[in-house]
Simulated scan of single mutants.
Amino acid sequence: MLGIKYFKADSSTFVIQTVNGNARKKGQGLSFFYNVATASIAAVPVSAQEAPFIFKLLTADFQSVTVQGQVTYRVAAPEKIAEMLNYSLKSDGKTYVSEDPLKLSDRVIRIVQSIVQNKVQNTSLRDTLKLAQTLVALLREQLIGDSSLAALGIALLDVSISAVQPTTETARALEAEAREALLKEADDAIYNRRKSAVEQERTIKEAELQTELSIQQKEQEIAESRLLNERAIQRGKAETERERLQAEIASESQRKEWVLLNSENSRQQADAEAYAITERMKAFRELPVENLKAMALAKMDPEQLMAMAFESLAQNAGKIGELNITPDLFGHIMKKSVRP
């Protein structure tokens, strides 16, 4: 029949058939015949769509960076977006009347760019290069609550930031700075290692010196103790010697007293004996000689009397004419002299 066509949509397309300003049919994956002259068809894809993006932005310190990522979204309220944008198909049922459906990704990306740019412009270069995860969290939070996306009936599925990169010259400068910092860290590590080695060596040396000092102190204490012991021994010896000398002195003093006493006694005895002899001699001097001889002869032995007689004979030999002495007389004297 002239002007009648058949339309069939896939399962990921929401279709709205309008006839004379009234919606006759709406839903996903519909198929129907329609009159090209009176019917209008709007086809809204409701499947997930990916929109990659690359933004060149300036940081707070006026450095250029490139933010690269991707946002994934879907049309959650196709009737809303059909009212806001023109999703009508041409009479062939295949192409759109306007470019609104093709520019939907640009609308979403512009919202993403606005959020990212606002954050990057208030952040320094160094901090911006570390903003990937922060930007992801920020985009999820703000895109879910964005009023313009809610008005279009768009729901955010996912967002990711794959890279935040500076310009080539800035990257080289940062690399050089980082390299210098790493070299400085390496030098610092070498310095710290050497310093640690020196400190350890000093600690070991101090420990050795402390040990040496302790040994010397112990040796000094031992030497002092030995000296004290030796002094105590010497004092003991000196005390013993002093006591011995005192004992000897006391003994000598006693001996001296004894000698003096003995001498005095001997002198007194000698004086007494001398006095006795003197008195005796005095008495002898006063006695006649004949009496003395008689007293002497009275106390003599026969042998002594014989000797005295012979001595008298010898003294008066000139007066004696003839003297006969028999052997029997001498024999008798000899027997008495050898008698035990």
Rank of each mutant, 00 (worst) to 15 (best):
Y34S: 07
Y34F: 10
Y34T: 05
N35K: 02
N35W: 01
A37S: 02
T38W: 06
T38A: 11
S40Q: 09
S40N: 09
V44S: 10
V46E: 13
S47L: 06
S47N: 10
A48T: 11
A48N: 12
A48P: 07
Q49E: 13
Q49G: 03
A51G: 06
A51F: 01
A51I: 01
F53S: 00
K56E: 15
L57C: 06
L57A: 10
L58V: 03
T59A: 07
T59F: 00
D61F: 01
Q63D: 13
Q63S: 12
S64C: 08
S64Y: 09
V65F: 06
V65N: 10
V67S: 07
V67W: 04
Q68M: 11
Q68G: 12
Q68W: 03
Q68V: 06
G69T: 01
G69V: 01
G69Q: 05
Q70C: 14
Y73M: 04
R74D: 14
A76T: 08
A76I: 05
A77L: 08
I81G: 15
A82L: 02
E83I: 00
M84N: 13
M84I: 04
L85E: 12
N86G: 12
Y87T: 05
S88K: 09
S88L: 11
S88N: 15
K90D: 15
K90A: 14
K90F: 10
K90Q: 15
S91V: 04
S91C: 08
S91Y: 05
G93N: 08
G93F: 02
K94M: 09
K94D: 14
K94P: 03
T95I: 04
V97P: 03
S98Y: 06
D100A: 08
P101E: 10
P101S: 10
K103E: 14
K103D: 13
L104N: 05
L104H: 01
R107Y: 10
R107S: 13
V108W: 06
R110T: 07
I111T: 14
V112L: 00
V112F: 00
S114Y: 04
N118G: 14
N118H: 15
N118Q: 15
V120W: 10
Q121M: 04
Q121C: 03
T123G: 14
T123L: 14
T123M: 15
T128G: 02
L129P: 04
K130V: 13
K130H: 14
L131C: 12
L131T: 11
T134N: 13
V136A: 06
V136C: 05
A137Y: 12
R140G: 13
E141N: 09
E141C: 01
E141K: 03
E141Y: 01
L143R: 00
L143Q: 02
L143K: 00
I144C: 07
I144L: 09
I144D: 14
G145Q: 13
D146T: 01
D146S: 02
S147H: 13
S148H: 11
L149N: 07
L149F: 01
A151N: 09
A151K: 03
